[in-house]
Structures are given as structure tokens and as C-alpha cells.
Design a protein around this nucleic acid. Sequence first.
DNA 1: ATTAAATGCAACCAGGAGGTTGCTTTATGT
DNA 2: ACATAAAGCAACCTCCTGGTTGCATTTAAT
Lengths: 119, 119
Amino acid sequence: MSKAEQNPANGEHDRDFSVMFAALGDPTRLAIFDRLADGKPRSISVLSDDADMTRQAVTKHLRVLEGAGLVQSHKVGRESQYAFCPEQLAQARAYLDQVAGRWETALMRLKTFVEGDDS
Amino acid sequence: MSKAEQNPANGEHDRDFSVMFAALGDPTRLAIFDRLADGKPRSISVLSDDADMTRQAVTKHLRVLEGAGLVQSHKVGRESQYAFCPEQLAQARAYLDQVAGRWETALMRLKTFVEGDDS
DNA sequence: ATTAAATGCAACCAGGAGGTTGCTTTATGT
DNA sequence: ACATAAAGCAACCTCCTGGTTGCATTTAAT
């Protein structure tokens, strides 16, 4: 859309955030992310154990989450542990806060206008 | 997965939020949403004018956003105006805040533990 | 009344997402 | 040394998503 297209930086901006939101936009992935929010790293097997899908499927989801920066993995021995990664979450929160802020200030302006504050 | 599956309410919980995140998980849609955050309702034509895609495509995106409750539409005359809808955004923010909160308390607990607070 | 604008509807299409199966590789435990 | 557990890789399949085109409908403007 224009406002994003006209400002090239904003386009990339949107794309970056959309990647993260897309990562959270799948119920399975959101559940995994939610589960990891207790800080405890978990192996793929552990995360797959009580899932109603294959280990490979879970692996793919974890890769997506990692690609979005929402989760980090490091191999320990033969297993790879996935752990919560708070930076991107903070980014997401900041973005939503910013949007909400724009909305609220716009609402304020409208309110004072409609109240006849024509000073 | 399990923790969500075992608690049926939590499963629905995740699904609901995932719908909203999925709606924001497309760069085009995120750009539209971002643009509408100034409070001004816009018609489909206006939103399509400077988009690099068909009006139909934009319409579909708007329907998705509306389905997620992020945007509301009402017909005025021959055109349908789409406007920002802040409630769901607030929900999303609250959810992310809650997740971040869980993470931080977990971090706290770990820190006090590792500091040898074995009282 | 006619023309033009704004939208809706439906069919269609290519590609990617989510998932599976089968096999290989790399560590662990005994 | 050997069996087993954890994970990686690759091919494959199905279905949904993002996008298109073509035509019909409703409303506004002249």
C-alpha cells in the first residue's frame, strides 16, 4: 500500500513484523511459543511427545519460530534445545503499542474537534 | 500442544489469538491495518488505489482483517468504508504482555535460585 | 434515462504451508 | 561393540492462500 510503498523503510518495517506475526499466526506454533514462555528450554522430542502430529512437523514449526527470532536453539549432545527468546516479543509489543498510540491520539484530536475547540 | 490440549479452554484461547496474528501476518494486510490506525475510515477503492494489486485482492484482505475483528466495515451509499477497530488490538497487546510477564517472573525465579537464595 | 463509479460474486490458477513417510546420521547408554 | 534415542534430510501430498479475470449489481452523477 502507498504509505508503506512511498516510504521504502516502512515497507521493510511491515515485512519484518509480518514475519513475526505470521509465525504466531498458527495455533500449533502459538501453543509452542506459549509453552516455552516459562523459560525452560525443551528438546524437539519433548515438545513433540504430547503433540498430535509428527516430530518432523513440530521441527518445521520450531524452525519457523526460530526464523522469526521468537525462539533460539542450541544443540546439546544429540538433542537440540529450543528456548524462548524475548527480544522479538518486545519488538512486537512495541509495535502494537505504537499503533495503539497513533489511534488514541487520532481519537483525541477528533474528540476535541467535535467538542468545538476551535480556539 | 499438550498443555493447551489438556486444558480445552486454553486451546480455544490459542486458536482465537492465532487468527488475529495470522491476519497481521501478511505484509499487505499489516500495511492496511497500519494505515487505518489514524482512525479515518476508507473505502475499498481508496485503499486499492495505490496498491500494486487488484481491488479484489484488497477486498479479500479486508475481509480477513474484519474476520479477525481488527477492522470494521459499514456501507455508506454505494461504497463500503473500512475503519480501525481497537478492541482486538488491545486483546493482542494484553496477550503479549501476559506472555512477557510469565517469562519475566520465570527469569526472576531463576536468578534468585542461582544467586543461592536457599532460605 | 444513461453513463460511470464502487462493489459483489464466482471461477480459476500457481505456489506455499502444514503435514506425512522413509531413510540416514549422530550421540548415548550398556 | 551394539542397540537405541534424537534429530536431520528429502520427497511427496493436500489444501489453503493470495492473486487474477470476467461479469453482474447497486448507487451516484449528468
